[in-house]
Design a protein around this nucleic acid. Structure first.
Length: 290
DNA sequence: AGCAGCGTCCGGCCGC
DNA sequence: TGCGGCCGGACGCTG
């Protein structure tokens, strides 16, 4: 389940392989064609398959950057800038190969959906087992307003201030802290894994109301989130279920997790508990976290 | 207007 | 072995 560190790993892998290259032609899987013609919004959002294929042709990939959990492909065609925004959903992955057979893991090979063929050879493939991922071709961020509402990058100046302002606003102060920190308008890139870990390290119960946490502890919590995200980036992300970096590479952060998917608290040895917060399973230690 | 809650997009995996 | 139920980012819709 890719969160900020995993997406960062994908971007770092992808950028040197495809920046500067031009998409000669492209295709999508029969599955996507069939689903889309049945009226579904499978992977390719806000465009027909036909228009997507036509518009993407001859695009030059200028730059690839991460923004929150999204991958931004800055593109250009006939001097016009475009932006391909890719979200990996639960099970999305990118591969740079010569042929789809080179995708070694069967489930990713079997669920390869978008094929971008480069002018100078090589194939950029998007695979997505559950098809929860998204691909949007825009002129710029302005074409898709939710992107404009994202919180600043957590490592950037102003991110802490933004977090405090949001968390202390009327809208969020009555909400459970885990829901607040997993909200992309409050903090960028913190999903279930890193929210769970940060709250555990801070001994904060995930169900505690935001307003019942002092400003001082909120600041420490924010700093802990940033630290955990950075630790995970340095470890290459967490390889959990279907996350893969470019070409199927794996990270090691899953070995450094202390609470996410644990049955026993790694601090006190007592059994953990789990509750639903904003519809998501939230694991915590009732003894350590208050 | 704004918000809570649900629907959407799915296959893997678990338990019976 | 077959099969129903559960899981989940984030937008979009509904009441």
């Amino acid at each position: 389940m890719p969160e900020l560190p995993e997406v960062e790993g994908v971007v770092r892998g992808l950028a040197p392989l495809v920046e500067g290259r031009t998409i000669k032609q492209l295709s999508v899987s029969d599955t996507v064609v069939t689903s889309k013609s049945a009226g579904k919004e499978t992977i390719i959002k806000g465009k027909t398959v036909e228009n997507f294929l036509q518009d993407m042709e001859q695009m030059q990939i200028q730059k690839i950057v991460r923004r929150s959990k999204y991958i931004y492909f800055h593109l250009q065609k006939q001097d016009q800038p475009h932006l391909l925004v890719s979200h990996l959903g639960m099970t999305g992955a990118w591969f740079v190969v010569n042929s789809p057979d080179e995708i070694t893991e069967e489930k990713f090979r079997k669920h390869a959906h978008i094929f971008l063929e480069m002018e100078d050879g090589g194939l950029l493939v998007y695979s997505d087992i559950r098809r929860f991922g998204e691909m949007r071709l825009l002129q710029s961020e302005d074409d898709f307003p939710p992107l404009l509402e994202m919180a600043p990058e957590p490592f950037s100046e102003g991110a802490l201030e933004h977090f405090l302002e949001m968390a202390e606003s009327m809208k969020y102060k009555g909400k459970q802290i885990k829901e607040v920190i997993m909200n992309g308008k409050v903090i960028s890139g913190c999903g279930n894994i890193y929210a769970t870990e940060s709250l555990f390290h801070m001994n904060i119960h995930p169900g505690r109301k935001a307003e019942r946490i002092s400003r001082k502890r909120k600041i420490l919590l924010f700093q802990e989130i940033v630290r955990v995200l950075q630790e995970s980036i340095d470890a290459g992300g967490s390889t959990i279920s279907d996350y893969r970096s470019v070409n199927g590479n794996a990270g090691t952060m899953q070995d450094r997790l202390h609470m996410y998917s644990k049955k026993i608290c790694t601090a006190c040895g007592k059994p953990t508990k789990s509750m639903q917060i904003a519809g998501r399973t939230s694991v915590y230690c009732p003894a350590c976290q208050r």
